[in-house]
Structures are given as structure tokens and as C-alpha cells.
């Protein structure tokens, strides 16, 4: 070794990788990734909304772009982060330590644990799955109920664990609306016979091409969007799911039986995000990182040399996480040239 590391990045997801690509051109960077390989949640996804970009390709491109100055250490579980004489010291589970003048936390999110919304029957009824599980079915190209049949009807429930006072998450997870649109199109392509229903509170189609995709899902793929929150679910003898809701546009109660129920789970801070946010005193009420200033210093924190980026700050789609990483890299480079 011998040569000093300039920046340690915890988390090798989109934000972490994007930051390393920018920073690595002129600085020595170490990425600490707790999983066996980099890519973060990209590894769990098949295609990305709204343009059906292949997640694997995105990941490969990022990894290929990593400059030589970047060292990647996978299966590296960081247990402690501390500031020591103006530098940042990171301790791994195996006792290994790394020291650098700057530290970027890009520890990301985790999907909401749908078991907490017991009324939707996740973990109780076999044919209730989450959007993450549906994505892996789509990746395999085969959507089957637990009984091994092709579902004739699929329903999606939006905002599972987001915008929900009862579970303490007031925030919007941003990605689920468009994700359901994307997945319902893919499901229809795989199961042309299936009827699809999507229960929503509001549909927030604010990104580029989002609205177009939403329109397409209705006109071309006949997805039926119903405004109203599902109140409860139950199971029938042949494992169909009975969904009870209120259609708030038609102002009437509604009941339907579906073969597969997909819960569009929201995003919560990952365990590492929660842990570091609390430890370093930069936590918002939900456990996400708080930046120094959300307008003018959105990647810096109140601590000198400590930066944050990506969905560890708040829910965001992949392109934004990539730009977050790049923006953080700029701030870090500036900091390094001022302080070294």
C-alpha cells in the first residue's frame, strides 16, 4: 500500500459507484461494499423504468468505468465510523481499519418489510408478493402463482409503507408509482390474458417519460387504475386473494378476487444508513441522512470531510442516485484541494 487513500466510499450501489468513477480520475478511492458484489439494488432489478433499460447493463457500464485508482473491497461489513484527528476512521467487522481525510456514505435504502402491513396478507397468503419478488419473476420470464398456475388477474397496491401514518412513514417513496406502471406493462407482455388493477392514492408521474408510460399502460396494456386504498384482504379456498377497497372516484365500495396481489413496497433507510445516521447525529425522523443544506450543500454534512449521497438521503430513482454520486464527487474533490 503505502499510498494514502483520499476518499472512502461506504456502499457500492449506483451513487457510490458514480462518485468513485468521477473521483478516481485524480484521487485514490476505496469502496467498501458489504455484499459479495457491487451494484446495490440494481442487482435485484431486471429492467429500469421508464425506458426498460437493462439493469445488468447499467451495472456493467458503471463497473467498467471505474478508474484504476479505485480499489473495491466487497463483503466488507463496516461496524464503526469515527472522526479521528481531522480524518475519518472506518472499522470493519474483521477488525481491519481504513483512514482517509474524506468519507462518503452511500449506504442506500431497503424495501419496506410488507409483513408490517398485516391487512394485506403478506407472509400469510401465498399469492401476496412484493414488487421486488415480482421483478425477479419478470427477470425469469415466468409469472406463476404459488400453485404453479398463470394468474388470470393481478392487482397492485401502491404506497405500501409509504405515505402511511400508521407505520410512521409520512414520506413518498417516489419510485413505486412508475415502477408499478413498468411492471404491469411487463406482466401484460408475459401474460396477455391477465386483467390488471392498480389501487392508488395519487399517481405521481413527474419524471421524463413517466406520464407517457402511464398513458401507454392504460391505452395499450389495459391496466385498470383505481383510486382508493385497499382496506383488507382475505383468502378464498383456492388461494385467490379477495381484495376489499373503496373506489373513491366512483364513490362506492369495491370487492374483487385476484390470483396474484403485488404490494408496491416503499423505501426505508437501510440498516447501515440508520446506524450511521444515528451514530453521527445526522438522522432525519425516519433514519435517512440529513445534508448540511438541501439547497446549497446537499452532499455535505455538518461534519467536516463527511459526505452523503443517494437513496440514503431520501427515496430517489437510479438516474438521480447516479447524479448524486457525481455531485458528491465534485464536492469531495473541492474539499480535498482546499484541505490537502
Amino acid at each position: 500500500m503505502g499510498q494514502e487513500i483520499h476518499t472512502i466510499i461506504i456502499g457500492g450501489g449506483p451513487a457510490g459507484l458514480a462518485a468513485a468513477i468521477r473521483l478516481g480520475r485524480h484521487h485514490r478511492v476505496l469502496i467498501l461494499e458489504k455484499e459479495a458484489e457491487c451494484g446495490g439494488k440494481l442487482n435485484q432489478w431486471d429492467k429500469l423504468f421508464p425506458d426498460f433499460e437493462d439493469a445488468k447493463t447499467v451495472r456493467q457500464t458503471l463497473l467498467q468505468r471505474l478508474p484504476e485508482n479505485v480499489t473495491v473491497q466487497t463483503s466488507a461489513n463496516v461496524t464503526e465510523v469515527a472522526q479521528e484527528s481531522g480524518k475519518w476512521k472506518v472499522t470493519l467487522q474483521n477488525g481491519e481499519t481504513h483512514i482517509a481525510p474524506t468519507l462518503l456514505l452511500a449506504t442506500g435504502f431497503e424495501p419496506f418489510n410488507a409483513i408490517r402491513k398485516e391487512e394485506y396478507g403478506y407472509g400469510i397468503y401465498p399469492n401476496v408478493i412484493t414488487s421486488v419478488e415480482l421483478e425477479s419473476m419478470i427477470a425469469k420470464g415466468e409469472i406463476l402463482t404459488r400453485e404453479g398456475k398463470k394468474p388470470q388477474s393481478v392487482a397492485y397496491i401502491q404506497c405500501v409503507g409509504s405515505r402511511d401514518e400508521k407505520v410512521g412513514n409520512h414520506f413518498c417513496s417516489v419510485n413505486c408509482c412508475i415502477c408499478a406502471v413498468k411492471q404491469s406493462i411487463e406482466v401484460k407482455q408475459l401474460l396477455p390474458q391477465a386483467n390488471q388493477f392498480c389501487f392508488y392514492m395519487d399517481l405521481r408521474m413527474s419524471g421524463r417519460n413517466y406520464e407517457e408510460r402511464y398513458r401507454e399502460s392504460q391505452e395499450k396494456y389495459h391496466v385498470n387504475f383505481i383510486r382508493g386504498r385497499v382496506s383488507e384482504t382475505s383468502v378464498t379456498a383456492n388461494n385467490q386473494i379477495l381484495v376489499k377497497a373503496e373506489d373513491t372516484l366512483l364513490s362506492r365500495p369495491i370487492k374483487m378476487k385476484v390470483d396474484l396481489l403485488v404490494l408496491m413496497v416503499g423505501m426505508e433507510p437501510s440498516p447501515s444508513t440508520r446506524q450511521f445516521a444515528e451514530k453521527l447525529g445526522i438522522s432525519d425522523p425516519y433514519g435517512y441522512f440529513v445534508s448540511q443544506n438541501s439547497e446549497t450543500a446537499d452532499n455535505a454534512t455538518v461534519h467536516k470531510g463527511l459526505f452523503v449521497a443517494g437513496s440514503a438521503k431520501r427515496p430517489m430513482p437510479v438516474p438521480q442516485a447516479l447524479k448524486e454520486g457525481e455531485a458528491a464527487a465534485c464536492e469531495i474533490a473541492g474539499y480535498l484541494s482546499d484541505n490537502l
Binding site: Q152, S153, N195, F197, N224, T236, A237, N238, Q240, D247, R252, P253, I254, K255, M256, K257, V258
Partner: peptide
């Protein structure tokens, strides 16, 4: 009002009631 007859209303696909 919420009898099995009404269950078949409102976009219910499989009308047959599964209850014993």
C-alpha cells in the same frame, strides 16, 4: 348490502364464491 350477489359486481372476475 354486501351479500355474495354484490361481490360479483364491481369488476369481480371470478364470481363463484369459495366459502363453504
Amino acid at each position: 348490502a354486501v351479500t355474495p350477489d354484490n361481490v360479483s359486481d364491481n369488476n369481480v372476475m371470478n364470481g363463484a364464491s369459495a366459502t363453504s
